[in-house]
Design a protein around this nucleic acid. Structure first.
Length: 439
RNA sequence: CGGGGCGUAGCACAGCCUGGUAGUGCGCUCGCUUUGGGAGCGAGAGGUCGCAAGUUCGAAUCUUGCUGCCCCGACCA
């Protein structure tokens, strides 16, 4: 993509309304535009990142055997009356009345909707286990939206729902998602740690929050330092026993949010206990028959008798992750995208647009990179060197390739790694191998 | 929902106290000079001063109401 033909409205100065770093950088990098409090438009650069995150989340859900569906944003109130949540949910639920005076709502979540789908079509235990997910916009009318995209009112979320015959099955489904989440966050370039979360009246130990570590995080977390050294699991088709073993390993170390942490009862040695700040990006939860019971989601068991299915739900804040990744990965100059989610892999800087030799060298290099399947943002504008460098640093592409009059004479390009700042001058052909060779 | 703050050009702000018809920096357009880390000079474009009533000969400025946004707290993916 040539920058001259792209839509990238960057800002040199910090917008006043943005306090935290991800919000500031997203506005400055031209990724989003606020529409109203907690509601944003996604501009091309931001949209690419959002879609990249969504893609990885989707791939890992599919790999874990979850099936993608798409449920509506607008739901009938009657479904929520069945579960009792229409009255319980409170003002965070945006309620709408259609032209026929029917009560509707903009979905803050989809348990009722998915339970309705399930009960309409699944009759036999032979169809279990089942895990349905979708990636859809949600709306929660937060009293106080803040932190830009991190806590908006409208947000993109992946939510999966598992259906099993009994608790044992549900536990395997839960463990399956637990492991999928570890893989997902690792691919997103994040250090995410699972925290045991409050399970409320349902009880049990099947509820975890996944927290991304970032100095600017919203809440404080305490954990055993060895937790971060664990290997991310690999491979597919794990048996229930394998899944359980992985979950057991990851939950064997102490980890708690500040409201759950009690220094009195915490038995981790002080030297091993780490305290950092974090951002919640995922939550998995087993809730048993809470909805299946009230909404009549049953299947015939092996003995022919109806069984109320056991359910769980598994959320990942896709749009929130955009902010979360920035919080976890930036410096004073701007964003530092992990390659897996970067909007472009390489930023090509033409230091002297209009100079025949520079233009020719850049155009050719751009063509070859593109041909090799590398996504490039090519700054072919007439700007000055300093502003081009600053802009590239700001938008955080993993690699910068700079071609200027000095290097073009000797046929070299300067390749800079955004994360390390390391620069090297290499021949054009070598740079091509370097940049196209990496996946 | 309690408390606080702010709405003036695309962005950041001054002007308001003490009314007289709007300004600075950045950005944008054009020209010249520059050219390896957000350049210099010159010339331009761009504003119903959040909205509405009121006071006044006259309101960005004073009064009242409304509205939008931000921050702290309580609450949440």
């Amino acid at each position: 993509m040539r920058l001259s033909r792209y839509f990238l409205p960057t800002l040199k100065e910090d917008p006043k309304e943005a306090q935290i770093v991800s919000h500031r950088l997203m506005l400055r990098a031209g990724m989003i535009q606020q529409s109203s409090a907690g509601i944003y438009s996604w501009l091309p650069l931001g949209h690419k990142v959002l879609k990249n995150i969504e893609r990885i989340v989707r791939e890992e859900q599919n790999r874990a055997g979850a099936l993608e569906i798409l449920m509506p944003t607008l739901q009938p109130a009657d479904l929520w009356r069945e579960s009792g949540r229409y009255d319980d949910y409170g003002k965070e639920m945006l309620r709408i009345v259609d032209r026929h005076e029917r009560d509707m709502l903009y979905g803050p979540t989809n348990e009722e909707q998915v339970t309705d789908i399930f009960r309409s079509h699944v009759r036999s235990y032979k169809n279990l286990p089942l895990n349905l997910y979708h990636i859809q916009w949600k709306f929660r009318d937060e009293v106080r939206p803040r932190f830009g995209i991190m806590r908006g009112r409208e947000f993109l979320m992946k939510d999966a729902y598992s259906f099993d015959l009994d608790y044992e099955g549900a536990k395997t489904a839960y463990n399956n998602m637990f492991v999928a989440y570890l893989k997902t966050f690792a691919r997103l370039g994040l250090k995410a740690i699972p925290l045991r979360a409050e399970t409320g009246p349902i009880g049990g130990d099947l509820s975890h929050e996944f927290i991304v570590l970032a100095d600017t995080g919203e809440s404080e977390v305490f954990y055993h330092k060895n937790l971060l050294d664990l290997e991310t699991p690999e491979g597919n088709d794990c048996s229930p026993e394998d899944l359980q073993a992985i979950v057991d390993e990851w939950t064997s170390f102490y980890a708690a949010a500040d409201e759950m942490h009690n220094p009195e009862t915490c038995d981790v040695a002080e030297a091993d206990l780490v305290s950092r700040r974090g951002i919640e990006v995922g939550h998995i939860f087993h809730f048993g028959d809470k909805y299946s019971k009230t909404m009549g989601a049953t299947v015939a068991g092996p003995d022919g008798k109806d069984v109320t299915v056991s359910m769980g739900s598994y959320g990942i804040g896709v749009s929130r992750l955009v902010g979360g990744i920035i919080e976890a990965s930036h410096d004073d100059d701007g964003i530092i995208w992990p390659e897996s989610v970067a909007p472009f892999k390489v930023g090509l800087i033409n230091l002297k647009s209009g100079d025949a030799e520079c233009d020719a060298a850049c155009d050719s290099f751009y063509g070859k990179l593109t041909e090799a399947g590398v996504e490039v943002l090519y700054d072919d504008t007439a700007g000055r060197a300093g502003e081009k460098f600053a802009k590239m640093d700001l938008i955080g592409l993993p690699w910068q390739a700079t071609i200027g009059p000095r290097g073009v004479k000797s046929g070299v390009v300067e390749v800079k790694n955004r994360a390390t700042g390391e620069k090297q001058e290499v021949a054009l052909s070598e740079a091509l191998t370097l940049l196209a060779g990496r996946s």
